[in-house]
Computed example of a mutant assay.
Amino acid sequence: MITVHLVAANGATSTLEVKTGDSLMQAAVSANVAGIEADCGGLMTCATCHVYVREPFASQLPPPQDDEAGMLEFTAAERRPTSRLSCQITLADELDGLTVDLPDAQH
């Protein structure tokens, strides 16, 4: 189990104890975290699980694949250098303490 922190646009933080191997999106949806819509269920066709990954974790993640990079062009909120789709972040031991900020809108 690892700990991840999801910070809403209003500053409210959800701290989750999650198992490795799941995606960040799966963990957030299972915990009913507001702000991760995940309309497509993780099929990478909607960009409604957009997050901003904080350092040092943003630079530890592999770069987005072409499909993810393309979907990030369609986010409702501003795309930033640390923008990622949470469905594409696989939780692993080295991501213990991962903190992401949720955008103010997913639609």
Results as ranks from 00 to 15, higher is better:
Gln88Asn: 14
Gln26Lys: 12
Thr75Cys: 09
Asp104Cys: 02
Asp101Ala: 13
Ser14Pro: 13
Ala12Ile: 13
Thr45Leu: 13
Pro64Met: 13
Gly21Asp: 08
Tyr52Gly: 07
Ala69Asn: 10
Ile2Val: 07
His5Leu: 10
Leu6Gln: 05
Val51Thr: 11
Glu68Lys: 03
Asp67Ile: 15
Ser14Leu: 08
Phe74Ala: 13
Thr48Asp: 06
Gln26Phe: 03
Asp22Ser: 13
Glu55Pro: 01
Gly41Asp: 03
Lys19Pro: 14
Ser30Lys: 15
Cys40His: 02
Cys87Phe: 07
Asp93Lys: 07
Ala92Glu: 13
Leu72Pro: 11
Ile2Ala: 08
Met1Cys: 08
Ser30Asp: 15
Glu37His: 04
Glu55Gly: 00
His5Val: 14
Thr48Glu: 10
Val33Glu: 09
Gly11Val: 01
Val33Cys: 04
Gly11His: 00
Val4Cys: 06
Ala105Trp: 02
Asp104His: 10
Ile36Arg: 02
Ala77Thr: 01
His5Pro: 07
Ala77Trp: 02
Glu17Ala: 15
Asp101Val: 12
Pro64Gln: 11
Ala76Gly: 14
Val53Cys: 03
Ala31Glu: 12
Met44His: 05
Ala69His: 01
Cys87His: 05
Ala76Leu: 11
Arg80Trp: 01
Ser59Tyr: 05
Met71Glu: 13
Glu17Met: 03
Asp39Tyr: 06
Thr45Gln: 13
Ala92Met: 10
Ala105Glu: 12
His5Ala: 14
Ala47His: 02
Gln65Gly: 08
